[in-house]
Structures are given as structure tokens and as C-alpha cells.
């Protein structure tokens, strides 16, 4: 079946299988490999993208359900001011080690910070429950968010 959606601001029309996931469309059909597959069961959050602004695990999100919707991946968030601020802060704060989880973290955090300009660390630890990082222990990721928040609120 055919499915049309907006990805990173551009209309895309793809042929999909009815049971296909959004992750499959992004990685295999559109070669947007910035979004990662870690578990394929909605446990790790490496595949997080924004659908109509909401963070979803694209590995368990129906491609068909994406029709007519607006998807933002890490590649697109690189062009978003908040996304770019977060990315820079991740690098500056040591929030990236292997980096495989990072695109998913960026996606979740863009959504969180769009909704709440200054979340507390506890809020963030809760909001990030669906994003697993095996390398950092999260502290420097939280530092990166704090730096982003203070930078954005300071200007």
C-alpha cells in the first residue's frame, strides 16, 4: 500500500507493507539511518522520533498510521533550533559516548522541552524512562539538558 507523510518538512510517498513499522520506513526505505534500532520492542527508545510533535518508539509505531502525519527524525532536528542547541550541549557536556542512543534522547528531549521550558531534574529522569543509555549513567545527559535550558532561558 502507498503511504504519504511529511518527514523533516518534506513530503514523502512510500510503498509499505501493512504491518510495517515507521522505523522500517525511515531506515530501510528512506535510508534515514540516524534513527536507531536497539530492541524492536519499545524498551530502549533508540528509535524515538517525533510524530506530530510527540515522541514515539518508531519500532512499534505502525507505518500505515503515519499517513498524513508529520515526522521529525534526528536528521530533521539538526535543523531545528532547539534540536541543534541540545545536540551541541550533548557534545559539550560529555552526554555522548557511543552515541547510539543519542538520536532517541534528542527526539524525546525536544518534545519535553517544547512542552516545558524548564523541567526539574526529577521531571527529566521520569520523562527519559523510555530512553536507555548504557554508557553514560545519564548524569552528563542531564547536564546537557540543564545547559540547554539555561542557555535558552538566558537569551
Amino acid at each position: 500500500m502507498e503511504m504519504t507523510f511529511t518527514v523533516n518538512g518534506t513530503q514523502a510517498k512510500v510503498e509499505i507493507d501493512p504491518a510495517e513499522t515507521l522505523l522500517g520506513v525511515l531506515r530501510e526505505r528512506l535510508r534515514l539511518t540516524g534513527t536507531k534500532e536497539g530492541c524492536n520492542e519499545g524498551e530502549c527508545g533508540a528509535c524515538t522520533v517525533l510524530v506530530d510533535g510527540l515522541p514515539v518508539d518508531s519500532c512499534i509505531y505502525s507505518a500505515a498510521a503515519t499517513g498524513g502525519r508529520r515526522v521529525e527524525t534526528v536528521e530533521g532536528l539538526t535543523l531545528d533550533e532547539l534540536g541543534r542547541d541540545l545536540q551541541a550541549a550533548f557534545v559539550a557536556a560529555g552526554g555522548v559516548q557511543c552515541g547510539f542512543c543519542t538520536p532517541g534522547f534528542i527526539a524525546t528531549l525536544v518534545s519535553v522541552l517544547r512542552e516545558n521550558e524548564a523541567p526539574s531534574e526529577d521531571d527529566l529522569r521520569t520523562a527519559l524512562a523510555g530512553n536507555i543509555c548504557r554508557c553514560t549513567g545519564y548524569s552528563q545527559i542531564l547536564d546537557a539538558v540543564a545547559a540547554t535550558v539555561s542557555r535558552r532561558n538566558g537569551r
Binding site: A19, N40, G42, I60, Y61, S62
Partner: peptide, 23 residues
């Protein structure tokens, strides 16, 4: 199929194989 957080996993694992997915 609504949000799909259960159904998509069940499909991927082959636990269900419906002829029609009704979104």
C-alpha cells in the same frame, strides 16, 4: 489497531497474523 504499542509487537513476534488490520 489503535496506538499499536501491543499490537505491533505481537505482529513482529508472529503472535498474531490477522488478515485485516483495522486502524
Amino acid at each position: 489497531l489503535a496506538g499499536g504499542t501491543d499490537v505491533m509487537i505481537q505482529l513482529a513476534r508472529g503472535e498474531i497474523a490477522p488478515a485485516v488490520l483495522l486502524h
